[in-house]
């Protein structure tokens, strides 16, 4: 029955290891860029979502609902293939010569994730007592400055646990970039499989690496939370 021979050397040395490592590098780059960008964008959307101006609120709500409820792979295709129809030819040429696969994947991951992050931060903002806004406005702060200097720092702290979730999802979602040929970790694992017929080893290795990445993210945030955020709140 057991005629499958495990060969872990396939993924622990040689060119297949190099492939997996280069895939890891791309996954980390994709995730890191999209993480920072989606956080900033999500923050902005969350603030718009709570703006005193109704049109801004409506636009932000539409943004969240649209990008949260459209499959990520569709969004990736939209930015990669769909944008072609909308952009001038010269820009398309430039993009095609500058690793647009990676760029389109980053844009899609950023926008998709930002919609979720915006909702998390919005709940975080709503969890900050409204008296904080009153105190800041009473001191002469504009709405935006009060938001930025008083409300958001507190909201983000409250938002840390769901934010970690979004970052973990983002890292895993980045594997969808392979649908447009971005050679990230899952792509490379598949590649190793189709060359070596050692799919089990290749995907086990990829799984272990994703797990390790997740632990790094969770751990980093946990340390940051304990060393920086909690003392500030006196917890």
């Amino acid at each position: 029955m057991l005629n499958y021979k495990f060969d872990w050397a396939v993924v622990t040395s040689g060119k297949y290891l190099d492939w997996l490592l280069s895939g890891l590098k791309v996954t980390v780059q994709l995730s890191a860029v999209a993480m920072v960008a989606s956080f900033v964008l999500g923050l902005a959307i969350a603030v718009l979502r709570l703006s005193p101006l109704r049109p801004l609120r409506a636009v932000a709500a539409a943004y969240v609902e649209f990008f949260r409820n459209t499959p990520l792979v569709v969004q990736i295709f939209f930015w990669y293939f769909g944008s072609y129809q909308l952009l001038p030819a010269a820009l398309n040429d430039w993009l095609n010569n500058h690793n647009f696969e990676f760029g389109a994947a980053v844009i899609a991951l950023t926008i998709y994730t930002s919609a979720f992050i915006a909702e998390d931060i919005r709940s975080g903002i709503l969890a900050v007592p409204k008296e904080q806004m009153e105190a800041a406005r009473s001191a002469g702060f504009s709405y935006l400055t009060a938001m930025r200097r008083v409300i958001l720092p507190q909201a983000v702290r409250i938002t840390v646990p769901p934010l970690v979730n979004q970052f973990l999802n983002l890292t895993k979602n980045s594997s969808l970039a392979m649908t447009i040929g971005v050679a990230e970790l899952t792509y490379q694992a598949r590649q190793v499989e189709s060359y070596s017929f050692k799919g089990f080893e290749a995907f086990t290795a990829a799984t272990v690496v994703y797990l390790a990445l997740s632990l790094v993210i969770t751990g980093t945030v946990a340390v940051y939370d304990r060393k920086v955020l909690n003392p500030a709140l006196g917890r």
């Binding site: 007592p129 904080q132 009153e134 105190a135 009473s138 001191a139 002469g140 504009s142 507190q154 500030a232």
Partner: peptide, 19 residues
Amino acid sequence: NKLRAEIGFVFQQFNLYPH
């Protein structure tokens, strides 16, 4: 905002910035 800067307001619940 300019006018409010000239008016100090002290709340029942203090409302210090906890962060």
